[in-house]
Design a protein around this nucleic acid. Structure first.
Length: 213
DNA sequence: TTCAGGATGTACT
DNA sequence: GTACATCCTGAAC
């Protein structure tokens, strides 16, 4: 199975955040592949970014993984009840990561639905279908990603990314035209000048262009 | 369809 | 004690 290797995560974090759009996140759970296509990301760079947990190289037990080898997962709990998944980037010693903010479910949808809402797809309301994986906490809940996955190596067999679902033996979906939109990040009003960095990237469907910023 | 409000745990000051 | 890279529900429009 071809998947994104360590080298992919070594470069410029903002570029990686952009490059991750359209890639496939694979979560193996009890032998089943839960797969989603990434549609929204944000870059966080400790060196210069007040919104980053490791701003100014602040090193604590929590941020330790950000300083480590690229291509590992940084998972943390936010607002006491939601998890967020980040992919560690850049060489060791440079704390930086890309937050996965949203995706669309490709495979294992029935399982994802049960993890998200405790019921099958067929029972979901229109609102629940619309808000399936369109948020960082939702993505983690749907793919059962918790603190247990913190520091996990993303080049392993449990949680990884790939270019194309064919890499995990799935048919490639037919894609409608899309474009990439960049804008300021969400929920970081406290971060002063870093608030306005256009480090959020989103895939927008051309026929349904509702950019949210 | 939009909006306000509450739920909730951890890290760090 | 405070702030936090959020989500869900239900009420109002």
């Amino acid at each position: 199975m071809a998947r994104l290797d360590r080298e992919f995560y070594l470069g410029d974090t903002v570029q990686i955040a952009r490059n991750l759009l359209g890639k496939y996140l694979v979560r193996m759970l009890h032998g089943e592949a839960l797969v989603c296509r990434i549609t929204e990301t944000e870059a966080y760079i400790g060196r210069c970014d007040k919104a980053c947990h490791a701003y100014n190289y602040r090193r604590t037990p929590r941020t330790e993984v950000l300083f480590g080898e690229s291509g590992h997962a940084y998972v943390y709990l936010i607002y006491g009840m939601h998890h967020c998944l980040n992919l560690v980037t850049e060489p060791e010693g440079e704390p930086a990561a890309v937050l996965l903010r949203g995706g669309e479910a490709i495979s294992g949808i029935e399982t994802i639905s049960r993890l998200r809402f405790g019921k099958s797809c067929a029972e979901l309301t229109a609102s629940q279908r619309k808000n399936f994986l369109n948020g960082p906490g939702k993505l983690c809940k749907g793919l059962f990603i918790t603190s247990a996955e913190n520091t996990m190596d993303l080049t392993g067999d449990t949680l990884f990314l790939c270019d194309c679902p064919a890499d995990v033996g799935l048919p490639c979906p037919t894609l409608s035209p899309e474009r990439i939109v960049a804008g300021p990040r969400v929920g970081i009003d406290y971060a002063e000048e870093a608030r306005d960095f256009p480090w959020r990237f989103q895939l927008i469907k051309e026929e349904n262009p509702h950019a949210s910023f």
